[in-house]
Design a binder for these strands. Structure first.
Lengths: 335, 335
DNA sequence: CTGTTAGCGCATTCAA
DNA sequence: TTGAATGCGCTAACAG
């Protein structure tokens, strides 16, 4: 950054004190109209812009919100980022983004950067490999307002915004059952993550309620890419006792499953039915169009942002809220 | 942000000068080993972290890179952001994201915010509705290093990273022709955007080379969502002279086209063949799997980031480079 | 090896 | 209605 015009430059040029310039530029009502308009005109002419960094420094605050997600390019998260970005802009904040790539060490590193940058607050969804949560505790101890969304740290007392995962899975499985499926499997993630454990509980509960015996839990613990779903299905389809329905905990995973099926002549939903917990707009364009439990990401984003704003403005006296949004079954042709 | 420990706090507590603390913490070799370790130990114990904002202020520089894209949640861009985010982290930068939503006024507003925030540099892809480019010129005049990618301002002298759009479209059309298609249409964007005009030139050139008469240019000037592609195809399929092949300038558009076809019994590629210029991993999962001209977004991101780093470090003496990457035809079943 | 001084851009406090 | 003084956290230049 080269030298840019400052209030002192303006003051010197106009033979007034920089304090006066500062006041005029912020529209202080005490400044004489004449002086004010002279200053404003000159500032505009010279292209003066307040230095936000200096302002933040001076005021010991920040206009930056950090967003930490497992993977920026996954639609669930890019959609979330998009929404938060809009809200942030409306509220005078800037959003910086970080991705853990499902890697715990990286997540820790990112939190260090975030603390160092003295952001106003953080909205985070934890990585699949995060078991120890002390780095988040450290963040809070450092005084940074934190809101978790979707994948949260259960043992940390801060605001959390989730979908009702138990119910989402429960209803998905009930739907399978209502359609006559009885060998229902669950492709999920590590059980130390709330999202996956809650859904699996919902899955088991629905099974139990209907007295179904067949159970299948397949855990993917990597990056949740299409290839991981593909490989999961490859493995599953080699089992002696194959499922006739599958609940998939992410769209990418289900897309991989779909891909394996299409490539190997496995008919959806004839051979195996599929429901994905997803909010990806392309789920409806798969072959066949996919039945999904739709995650209301827009609502998650709005709520998360609101809670963070509260936490930022009310500081110490803010109370940790835990909010659940409902997923919604969208019936298409994969069941 | 509440009160956090500073080097002065440490200095006071240890009865030494804060300059010494500063030096010790940065590993200055002149500080006595004993003093240094005492300081480092104390700092660690108290959870001291350098205030990046103060540092930036002091050094008149920033560790923030701004990324401006039309839409964060579109895979092309979220993929780009993801890649740049990784590179930024490796290089000690933080990425803040902004989306124009294809809206010119919003884009202008964002550039103001970016200038105000004194970012180290900007990587941008312009909105479909951007005709006047003076706001970007203003950004450069303000001294902010700028690299354009994909959708660029032709008339601004700064580094640009693109795909060879003429060639991409040319080869796509040639492929259609080689497969016997002869009524080839082009669903594209506003012609004042390089991406679309270059592709349309490539399209026309390939047609001309083969002496094909049928021409169809359908312009989408909105947000490039799936619905826009859907509506485009609805319109196109009402024409008397229907195309037998379509080149689509984005994945979302082609997904909408695909959706309309599947809902209306239009066979792909029997009734109409499709190629999309895209890099979305789900293109291969559509029904039928989609033939695409794949945009090398990862390469675009890497190159853009490198050019920005050059521009940031070499300042005034940096030369604007214009770099093209090649798209690659991936043959699947929509042709 | 360590301390002193100064200043980045700005807004606040106090004084006039 | 305006000015003067101060300091946010940090580092560089200079002095010891």
């Amino acid at each position: 950054m080269e030298k840019k015009i400052t209030i002192k430059d303006i003051a010197r040029e106009l033979n007034i004190h920089h304090t006066t310039v500062s006041r005029a530029l912020r529209g202080d009502f005490r400044i004489k109209e004449e002086t004010k308009s002279k200053i404003v005109a000159y500032a505009k002419e010279k292209g003066y812009r307040v230095n936000q960094g200096a302002l933040n420094f001076r005021n010991k605050q920040s206009n930056e919100i950090a967003l930490l997600v497992p993977n920026i390019s996954h639609y669930t998260f890019s959609n979330f980022i998009s929404r938060v970005s809009d809200l942030a802009q409306e509220n005078g904040f800037v959003v910086s983004v970080f991705q853990s790539k499902e890697n715990y060490e990286n997540e820790k590193e990112i939190l260090k950067i975030i603390m160092q940058n003295r952001v106003a607050g953080v909205i985070a969804s934890i990585s699949n490999s995060t078991i120890d949560t002390s780095h988040f505790r450290q963040l809070i101890d450092f005084g940074v307002p934190l809101v978790f969304f979707d994948r949260v740290c259960q043992d940390i007392d801060t605001s959390k915004v989730m979908i009702d995962n138990f119910k989402a899975a429960f209803e998905a499985v009930q739907f399978f059952i209502s359609k006559g499926y009885c060998r229902i499997g669950h492709i999920t993630g590590p059980s130390h993550i709330n999202v996956f454990s809650d859904r699996h509980k919902g899955y088991l509960s629905a099974l139990e309620k209907s007295g179904l015996d067949y159970k299948l839990r397949y855990e993917v613990s990597k990056e949740f890419e299409i290839a991981d779903g593909f490989n999961a299905m490859k493995k599953i389809w080699s089992y002696a006792e194959k499922p006739d329905a599958l609940l998939c905990d992410s769209f990418t995973l289900s897309a991989g499953v779909n891909s394996f099926c299409n490539q190997n002549g496995i008919i959806i939903p004839g051979d195996v039915a599929i429901i994905a917990v997803a909010n990806d707009p392309f789920s409806g364009l798969l072959n066949p169009p996919q039945t999904v439990m739709e995650q209301p990401i827009g609502e998650l984003a709005t709520t998360s942002f609101d809670l963070l704003m509260n936490a930022i403005s009310s500081k110490n006296k803010s109370i940790a809220e835990v909010i659940y949004h409902k997923a919604r079954l969208i019936k298409r042709e994969s069941v």
